[in-house]
Amino acid sequence: MRWLRRNIIGIIAVLVLVYLFVPIAVVAVLSFNQPEGKYNVTFNEFSVSAWQNICGVPGVCESFALSIQIGLLATVIATIFGTMIAFALVRYRFRGRDSTNLLIFLPMATPEVVLGSSLLALFLNITFPLGFWAVTIAHIMFIVSFIVVAVKARLQGMDPRLEEASRDLYASPRATFRYVTFPLVLPGILGAALLGFALSFDDFIITFFNAGTMVTFPVYIWGAAQRGIPVQVYALATLVFFLSLVLVLVVQGVNARRRRRLEAAVASS
């Protein structure tokens, strides 16, 4: 009983984490299902056929590839724009700072339906064709702010003395940027880009408004939800989830091990 009282917060914390993963576990389990009818909702019979034939249903892999394409394009452009803004915000004083902060914050605070529908209103009014470019434009718009936030945090966390030391050691502003600032901020930029890609890849609402007849991976799932989502979709989603998780954990683990090694080295010297 006392043990319970003392560890109650830890127990709740673990339960909340479990809660976060229950639906994902369901998706993973259902990817090995042989559904009875067309709806893959209750587990019927174990089968690996969806995994063996992951592109077996027409449209699934095409939509998946399309989402990756849009994600990459939008991420690259948004990362460049967002990084530039973050540098301006952290490194420069300028008039209009408040409006800039606001303009960056608002897209994050606006519900996706509003973002998606307002862009659609614009595209309809200027008769801009819906589809690939409309969606890519929309994705750049809504992920730029997240990139700014992530890169800005990294920049603010950087010791300003490092750049001063570089200037003190004969590095011109350009050389300081190239040899000190950029290498130090790069991990932050890459992290931000990863986040941007994840947001774009998984976006449904904004995409749905501006895709026209184009079918991205989330749009495919939405459409399939009415007539039954193919098991292949579950397999693909599970694959993406575990690959990303492993990637992130490996990066984390490497960092942690390196940190521990450093601490040990410092302690022993």
């Binding site: 001063e164 030391a165 200037r167 011109s172």
Partner: peptide, 20 residues
């Protein structure tokens, strides 16, 4: 002269070694 043009060098209070 700018800092990078001066024949003067500094040992900083917290060293400011380049971590990378």
């Amino acid at each position: 002269l700018k800092a990078y043009q001066r024949p003067v060098n500094t040992v900083f209070q917290s060293y400011a070694l380049f971590p990378h």
